[in-house]
């Protein structure tokens, strides 16, 4: 592979993007940092308070609980979606009309507006009017996701799996399609079993897309807001209140600018750290593949 020529004038081509993203990303972020060190009563009455809001936020029990719930939820969802997505991707037919129909079907949940995802699962899972809820109650199990925290959790996870597993399926399918048939033939000649084919032929080819799948799913899952908001409203009690909803409650519900901003900065740093770690892994993996 030839190396790319160096040309500083390329900055001119990147400039529009930098300006747009600076306007919609950097300016707001700097504003958040400014808010986070002040007590803001109204636009003209502001006091510098240093790191007080950060200290409060970092020691806020409700934030710890929300963070803990968030991590449990994100890792549970990932632990189901990744293996399931790869399993389905392996089982999909590779070519033909059926393959493209199934792929379109898989893509549909990704294109449903986030609040409609919540609505769909609301009317699907309710005990009185929902197919799922009625069916479970019909089995003699007293299922009610608006009253039982455990049921609420299971419903949320089922919803997230419904919503996002397809992303892993599509990524995995694309990764599997890139494996030359010769690899499979060679494995057949060696008398490799299904598991060995998966382990030694498919998995190495899937590593790159899998890292991306983990990155995207983890990041998107950490910012989940709308779906639980519609489905459970964070309840029963606070048992399904995750980070973004906790933040939105402080920011828009109570309009506490300073504390909300301090929390935002902490939240952003957490995301930045994870994003950097995974990006480094992805880039390192890609460079090893090139070499």
């Amino acid at each position: 592979m030839r190396t790319k020529p160096e040309r500083q004038a390329a900055w001119l081509m990147v400039l529009p993007v930098v300006l747009v993203v600076a306007f919609s990303g950097v300016v707001p972020l700097m504003t958040v940092v400014n808010y986070s060190v002040q007590d803001i009563l109204d636009v003209d009455t502001r006091f510098f308070v240093g790191f007080d809001w950060y200290r409060d936020a970092l020691r806020d029990v409700r934030l710890h609980e929300a963070l803990w719930r968030q991590l449990v939820f994100s890792f549970t969802a990932l632990a189901i979606e990744l293996p399931l997505g790869i399993l389905v991707a392996r089982c999909l037919p590779r070519q033909g009309r059926a393959a493209s129909l199934l792929l379109v079907l898989c893509a549909i949940p990704l294109l449903v507006p986030l609040n409609v995802v919540g609505t769909i699962w609301q009317i699907f899972a309710r005990g009185d009017i929902g197919m799922l809820g009625a069916a479970i109650n019909g089995l003699g199990i007293d299922y009610n996701y608006t009253r039982e925290p455990l049921h609420a959790w299971m419903t949320l996870v089922a919803m997230d799996v419904w919503h996002w597993t397809s992303l892993v399926v599509l990524l995995g399918f694309a990764g599997l399609s890139s494996i030359p048939p010769a690899y499979y033939q060679a494995a057949d000649l060696d008398g490799a079993g299904r598991w060995q084919v998966f382990r030694h032929v498919e998995l190495p080819h899937l590593r790159a897309v899998l890292l991306i799948a983990v990155l995207l799913r983890l990041m998107d899952s950490l910012m989940i807001y709308t779906e639980p908001f519609v489905l459970t409203g964070g309840g029963p009690g606070n048992t399904t209140t995750f980070l973004s909803q906790h933040l939105a409650t402080i920011a828009v519900g109570q309009f506490d600018l300073g504390p909300a901003a301090a929390f935002s900065v902490i939240y952003f740093l957490l995301i930045l750290l994870l994003c950097w770690l995974f990006h480094t892994l992805v880039v390192a993996g890609a460079e090893r593949d090139d070499a």
Binding site: V21, G25, V27, P28, L29, T31, V32, Y35, M219, L222, M223, Y225, L243, S244, L247, A248, A251, V252, L257, A260, A261, S264, Y267, F268, I271, C275
Partner: peptide, 12 residues
Amino acid sequence: NRMSPPAVFLLP
């Protein structure tokens, strides 16, 4: 920026 939670940018 693609990875940042929108809730962070709500107020500004």
